[in-house]
C-alpha cells in the first residue's frame, strides 16, 4: 500500500494522541501543517481502506474495572469450525485466532467485571468439553516504538 506523505504524517502524529478540545482539527492543522479538511478526509479514506482499524480511545480494561485475559484451547481440526462457532457466540470474546500449534485456538476475553472472566471460561468449557488455558497479562514491558517502513 502506497501512502501519501501527508497520510504518514497523520498516522505518526495521531498514534501518539489526539487533541481533546473543542476543535481538535484546528490544533492538528498547526502541528501537521495540513489543512483540517484534508486531515479529516485522509483519515476517512484510510479507515475505509482498512489502513486504520480504529480511531478513538484505547481503554485500560483492568483499570476500568473490567476483566481481560488471553485464553487458548487445544481444538482438533475436525471440530475447529464447530468450536469456533461456540466460542464466538460469547459476546465477551473479542478476537479469535487460529495458530499453528497443538493449542490451536487463541482468543481474548473481555468482561465488564473481573470475576466474569472465570464464568465465561467455565461456560466455554462446559459447552465444548475442552479445557481452556487462562493466561492473563501479569506484567507489560515497555516497547520501543519505531517501526521502519
Amino acid at each position: 500500500m502506497n501512502l501519501h506523505e501527508h497520510d504518514k504524517k497523520i498516522i505518526n502524529q495521531l498514534q501518539g494522541g489526539f487533541p481533546i478540545c473543542e476543535n481538535p482539527w484546528k490544533e492538528l492543522e498547526k502541528t501537521l501543517e495540513i489543512p483540517a479538511d484534508e486531515i479529516i478526509s485522509r483519515i476517512k479514506k484510510m479507515k475505509s481502506e482498512g489502513v486504520i482499524s480504529r480511531f478513538g480511545p484505547m481503554y485500560h480494561a483492568e483499570k476500568m474495572g473490567g476483566g481481560l485475559t488471553l485464553a487458548a484451547m487445544k481444538v482438533d481440526k475436525e471440530r475447529y469450525d464447530e468450536v469456533t462457532e461456540i466460542v464466538n457466540s460469547f459476546s465477551e470474546v473479542a478476537h479469535n485466532y487460529e495458530r499453528e500449534h497443538e493449542l490451536s485456538m487463541w482468543f481474548v476475553i473481555a468482561t465488564e467485571l473481573p470475576q466474569q472472566v472465570q464464568q465465561v471460561i467455565d461456560k466455554i468449557e462446559q459447552k465444548t468439553g475442552i479445557n481452556v488455558y487462562n493466561m492473563p497479562k501479569l506484567q507489560e514491558f515497555f516497547l520501543g516504538l519505531k517501526f521502519e517502513i
Binding site: 501512502l3 498516522i11 489526539f18 484505547m58 476500568m64
Partner: peptide, 16 residues
C-alpha cells in the same frame, strides 16, 4: 490511565 491512549490504530498487514 483509564484511557491508555487516544488516537488511531493502524493495521500492520496493510502497511506491508
Amino acid at each position: 490511565g483509564d484511557i491508555k491512549r487516544f488516537g488511531l490504530v493502524v493495521r500492520h498487514r496493510k502497511l506491508g
